[in-house]
Design a protein around this nucleic acid. Structure first.
Lengths: 325, 325
DNA sequence: CAGAAAATGTAGAGCGCTCTATACACGCGC
DNA sequence: GCGCGTGTATAGAGCGCTCTACATTTTCTG
């Protein structure tokens, strides 16, 4: 910076003002400085800048798992909203290990970004509290709702209810749900399914499963061996639904004529022509947007915790149809 | 840091040594300082540390697109190798826009991370040169091979050759390739296919396509309307192959008895029981590992550019079988 | 055309750390 | 008792920037 100042024949302070786009600089000086900077290949040092200014203009995003589209779309929403507000985004990932998550959050805390978005749920409540105590933070898709930070969640239960509503309106009454045990989000989906069914006076059939294809296939096999097999199967997620479809195809059951199948998440899979799966869509980018907005409020000084619930919507494709009569 | 020093009754320099795990500190002092730091909730400020030390102990990873598993697995490989070497990883994404890529790389350059891994290919050669001039850098999956930085590429052509070899060994001789125009990697796959075919004295059939399901379906439709339809179809990637499968199913052609189908990339899709696609697997984590290793060499002072080619391997599943006689 | 207000530029004290040089204490051999 | 090496601790000068307070110049106003 000193070199640029000398080259342009001005003070270091002026160069600093130019680099920060201050309006307090005349056009003439600005051009002169910019030209010198360009000529010398000068680029402000972020570490020095942030140290001196005490702020980073950066939002840290800590993701549990980069492979999961859920989190990457969340990050995309954060990035878009951050960009609108002139902030940058730095991402760290826990690579699916809890130790990794701790390292990732530590990196961000050491960096003292202006705020942190946490897209992961493996931490215990105390960790959330500890993080929140150090920096403005908001957790996404975390069902613990720590009161020390804001949260943004999808209304899983409502998604399940939408499915039940859709299927019953098509005349289905023997509806089975293949769940995913205690995996994140699964208990909420199960509860939503069960209460939506009982509200309609229907007996909820729940089979144990998981968030993968194999589990879907196994559960479907058991379900179709029942004396009265269900006319509709609501799988834990799209992948699990894929397993269900595979089994149904193997026993020559027609979809949706004999059995209707519903997934959850609206992943790439669901949209494939071969599967064309009715599923529940979550506006995942919106999660990132709301999270960032809440974070910006926090950065500006709000302290009371806010908890938001985002509503999913049903995407009807050709894996569901009227119940067989 | 001053507070911790005062609390522990030592100098600031000693606290600094303790925080950096220096061996030059007695056990007694170390414990005392650590206890004080813990009590006061002290956490070293990364900005100040990096500014003063002139190094960041951090590798920056710039990805074109976080949604693409290709890049996220690359990043995972980088993270793993970086961790082994005691370095941290910070990720920025270009969100599929060129302007985004520039912002992402600028963030990293301003941060002056110890090195940069670039997992994106939209830049012009000059941008690569400019980046390489400022920081040690390595580009992955970039087919331009700028001589200013190291590169790690997958040997796409070889992957295509593996496919041809597999199919011809099964007796296929009318093999069609659905390509993906000039999308990254596609020209290399096409060239590999064509040369492998001609080497074996076979006429390469190439149809225009893209890296998506729709293109695969359209091309398959045209291919199967030929007077002599191919007995094997090698799609541009798994997604495109999914489209091929969908069309074949719609015209009741059996896979692999009537037509063999091969994808590329070995994504989640290929492994699904319903599709069970023979495909080409790329060791994507290995890319990240090699990239990081090259980068560490650069950081240590190597200046001559290295270009590595990583070999893919064929994963045979049930979408390929002996050619119909 | 004086005087105030606005516009523009500058000096210099930090920001929170690292790192070189140096100090001090201790035990060793001669 | 001296010099020496070894193990620990410290002082203090930066790292490259920002920001407050102030200086200087230009413009506006009656």
């Amino acid at each position: 910076m000193d070199d640029v100042a000398a080259h342009a024949g001005v003070s270091r302070a002026l160069v600093s003002l130019v680099m920060r786009d201050s309006p307090r600089v005349s056009d003439h000086s600005r051009k002169k400085v910019l030209a010198s900077a360009n000529e010398l290949g000068y680029r402000p040092n972020a570490w020095a800048r942030n140290l001196a200014s005490g702020q980073t203009n950066t939002i840290g995003v800590m993701l549990n798992d980069l492979h999961n589209p859920y989190f990457t779309e969340l990050a995309e929403g954060v990035a878009a909203t951050a960009a609108e507000n002139g902030m940058e985004v730095l991402i760290t990932s826990g690579w699916q290990r809890e130790s990794g998550e701790h390292a990732a959050i530590d990196t961000l805390l050491n960096l003292r970004t202006d705020g942190i978005v946490i897209g992961a749920a493996r931490f215990s409540g105390e960790v959330f509290d500890e993080v929140a105590q150090q920096l403005p933070a908001v957790a996404v898709a975390n069902f613990q709702r720590p009161d020390s930070m804001d949260t943004v969640c999808n209304d899983e239960a409502h998604g399940a209810e939408l499915v039940v509503e859709h299927l019953t309106s098509l005349g289905h009454d023997r509806i089975a749900h293949i769940d995913a045990g205690n995996a994140p989000g699964a208990p909420e989906r199960r509860r939503g399914f069960m209460s939506a069914m009982s509200e309609r006076g229907l007996a909820p059939i729940v089979f144990e499963g998981d968030f993968n294809e194999h589990a879907g296939r196994d559960a479907a096999e058991q379900l179709m061996r029942l004396k009265q097999p269900p006319t509709a199967i609501f799988a834990a997620n799209d992948l699990s639904a894929t397993g269900v479809l595979a089994h149904l195809r193997s026993i020559d059951a027609r979809v949706p004529e004999d059995v209707a199948v519903v997934g959850y998440d609206d992943t790439l899979l669901a949209g494939l022509g071969t599967l064309s799966l009715t599923t529940v869509h979550q506006p995942r980018q919106l999660f990132g947007q709301r999270a960032t907005e809440l974070l910006l409020e926090r950065i500006k000084g709000r302290t009371a915790a806010k908890h938001e619930l985002i509503q999913p919507r049903l995407v009807v494709r050709s894996s569901t149809g009227p119940a067989p009569t």
